[in-house]
Structures are given as C-alpha cells and as structure tokens.
C-alpha cells in the first residue's frame, strides 16, 4: 500500500472535532497508517496559509486540514474560512507545478473516530499513488 516509501503527512486538526476524533480512534483501537503527524489547532480558523506551504517546504508529502462539520464550528465560521484558504493554496500549488491533491480539507465531528481513521487511510493511499514530493534525497534547501 505504501508504494515503497513511508510518506509524511501533516494533519492540521481542530481541537473541537478532528483532534478529538483522532483520540477516539485511538481509544477504539482503530488501525490507520502511521504516516500522519497531527498538529492541534484551537480551530481551523487559526490555520495560516504559511503553515501549509511551510509543511511542504519542510518535507511533507501531503497535508490535510480537518475541521468541524459546516455549521458546527465552535467559533462560528473558522472552518469556512480555513476551507477558502486551503482552496487558495491548492490553486497556488497547481501553479507551482505541485499536485494539488497533496492538500485536502475534511469536515468531521468529534464523535467520528472511524471517519478519522478512514481519512488517514484515504490520504495515505492518495499520497502513495502520487509518490514523494521530492523525487530523490534531501531537499537542497532543507536545513532542518
């Protein structure tokens, strides 16, 4: 399934939904690939477009952003704003010659442990198909 490499996927997760769902997936002992690095945000509204670019720059092969179901944002519209930012960066990636599918936005609730595991599997499969973002070796400018 991993196409010969273990991908790095950064998952920006909202504290109120996706992060709790990830926790639930763990409690339920659901299996999902280990490629994800989860970063908790107080709300996906906090998501800065620079976080997304920096994640790719620092070596991520894929990035996902997971926020609350539409209409259920703890801060009313943070998830909607985040979605717009993700769309803008997808468009920019495409223009930079990078597959926009490497970035995705998901909506889920804190009760959806299984959905979280499924998102992790789906994204890992997708990135495996696309292959590593950099074809070989260490990124020349990656000092970290």
């Amino acid at each position: 399934m991993n196409n010969g490499f273990e991908s790095k996927i950064v998952a920006f997760c909202c504290h109120y939904c996706a992060f709790a769902a990830a926790d639930l997936a763990g409690v339920l002992r659901l299996k999902y690939p280990p490629d994800l690095r989860i970063i908790r945000l107080p709300c996906t509204g906090k998501l800065d477009t620079l976080f997304l670019l920096k994640a790719f720059e620092k070596g991520a092969d894929g990035v996902l952003v997971a926020g609350c179901l539409e209409g259920s944002c703890h801060f009313i519209s943070g998830n909607l704003r985040a979605k717009k930012r993700v769309l803008a960066v997808k468009n920019l990636l495409e223009r930079l010659g990078i597959e926009k599918e490497r970035l995705e936005f998901f909506n889920l609730s804190s009760a959806q442990g299984e959905r979280f595991a499924q998102i992790a599997r789906e994204m890992t499969e997708r990135i495996a198909k696309l292959g590593p973002l950099r074809s070989s070796g260490r990124c020349p400018y990656d000092r970290g």
């Binding site: 620079l50 670019l53 790719f56 720059e57 930079l96 990078i98 990124c139 020349p140």
Partner: peptide
Amino acid sequence: EKEVGLLAAAVRLARAKSGAPIEI
C-alpha cells in the same frame, strides 16, 4: 513580512520541484 514568507515558500517549492533550487 507575511507575504515575503508566503512568496518565498512558494518559490522555493516550485524551484526545488523543477530541479533548479534557489536560496532565498
């Protein structure tokens, strides 16, 4: 400052991808 960071990240990505890395 914000846009400098964004643009630099974008350009580094594109240049690395195209095999002509740039130091910014």
